[in-house]
Design a protein around this nucleic acid. Structure first.
Lengths: 261, 261
DNA sequence: CGCAGTATTGAAATTTCTCAAGCCGAGTGG
DNA sequence: CCACTCGGCTTGAGAAATTTCAATACTGCG
């Protein structure tokens, strides 16, 4: 096995381990079981679909670099973006248990993913409750983010809505270590931003101008710059509780014993 | 133990078993483990909160009768309804792994719930992967419903949005055996419907009039009547795939063996 | 330089909301 | 039996927000 591939393997393994650790308490055996997972890495071109609405995938995606997005396609062809995923995210573990995709997943920029066969993951979860809980939890955080999106697109005004969205993206990017110079990658143009936030691209444009003028945030050529984090967070009434970064939960305090009915 | 309580126990047990079976394939041992779960039943008054944003619950709720709703409360006091839950639903299993509630749960009408201690559920899931997968899947279907709500409130016009919402409620009620005479309970007034769909109560009113005039659906005093299911479904472009009623998935075809590392 | 995609602008058309008032049916008490 | 009240539904109209349309800049790149 060439060195390049070995380095690749270690990179994926370490990132995956780190992610699972974020969501649960693992035993040494759990960790080595995760290390045994074989994944293939894959480069994606901007706009490329990874899985589509209606597919029955047999692998899960693990984001290594770039940004992926989930979206719905309506019969009219219109698109609604649902969520955005960065390094360390597993945007479709749910495909593990739901056989048919109810939405699509695409790359927004040059992205890189690792592909984890469902078979291996199911096997892993079936015999290691600690790992199952961690993956499960990860999908629950996803769900919490969806809930927030409902509220965001539902009752918040355009400006607050965009601000809240930027808070979320920036906050998550920071957690993933992807913020540099108060800025992070958000590879969306104004039309796409509109398709995420349920507003026209004209409204997005005018909203962006306002956020820029008020020195809160700016989005230019796929890069989000936060001009004043405190002010932005206050303006958006952003409360990161829903991201559930406090991994402490009942489960992690419980001792598991596999092996007994 | 008085007969009444025994009948009560059986009722909860059977409903829970049925729900879990919907989401996975259980062994006899799994089933008897579920039967061993002890739950308390509880009556709820309309409007009563079950858990609130910020709480750290140690029980999960299982709906026996009536309707419960999840909602967000904004600093302004405004409310956004997120999802609605009927007989057989488990609207907060996610509290099992996420320690802090990012939303609230309330009863919309006279409701009845069973209260399942997290401790028992975690224990159950930790040693019975089949059960864990079933509960996990249930939260994934929830997430799919959230995604649909994002799209619904995001790009669909008011009339289509309401129609789609009614399709979902009616379809789920029918699955749960709660439809009678083409109608089911949806105990919301027009203001609350607006808080679910992200529109003002005036818009709701005008939209309802239109759906009524077009002989699609009607909502009066907490009861939704579908006047023409096919037409309503067509109008809303309702595709129930996202409810994932096809329980067949990779997992249910896999044989699990607990007990080996 | 010119192209393509993106951003910006202005103005009209439309939708949606807000406000204010009236209606209606169920339940209450005189 | 009827007046009264309450909550929810309905209506109209003006105000505000948002979208649509159309045209004009800007920018990076071949």
């Amino acid at each position: 096995m060439p060195t390049k591939t070995l380095a690749e393997y270690k990179r994926v393994r370490d990132l995956l381990l780190a992610k699972v650790r974020e969501h649960g308490t693992l035993t040494a055996a759990d960790e080595s079981a995760i290390c045994a997972v074989r994944a293939q890495t894959k480069a994606l071109a901007p706009g490329a679909d990874v899985v589509c609405q209606g597919d029955r995938p047999d692998v899960a995606v693990f984001v290594l670099a770039g940004m992926l997005a989930r979206y719905h396609t309506l019969p009219s062809g219109d698109r609604q973006y649902l969520s955005f995923h960065i390094k360390g995210d597993l945007p479709d573990v749910h495909g593990l248990l739901l056989s048919i995709m109810d939405h699509s997943l695409c790359a927004l920029d040059e992205a890189e993913i690792a592909v984890l066969p469902h078979e291996q993951l199911v096997h892993l979860c079936a015999r290691r409750p600690g790992i199952a809980f961690a993956f499960w939890r990860l999908t629950l955080v996803d769900a919490a983010i969806f809930r927030q999106a409902i509220t965001n697109n539902g009752i918040r005004s355009h400006a607050v809505r965009a601000a809240h969205f930027f808070c979320e993206q920036y906050f998550r990017a920071r957690e993933a270590g992807l913020v540099e110079d108060e800025s992070c990658s958000v590879p969306l143009n104004q039309s796409e931003l509109g398709q995420a936030l349920g507003m026209s691209h004209i409204s997005v444009n005018r909203t962006m101008q306002r956020l820029r003028k008020d020195r809160l945030a700016d989005l230019r050529s796929g890069r989000l710059t936060v001009l004043n984090w405190n002010a932005l967070q206050r303006f958006a009434a952003f409360d990161p509780t829903y991201l559930h970064l406090d991994k402490i939960s009942k489960v992690s305090q419980t001792r598991f014993r596999t092996g007994r009915k």
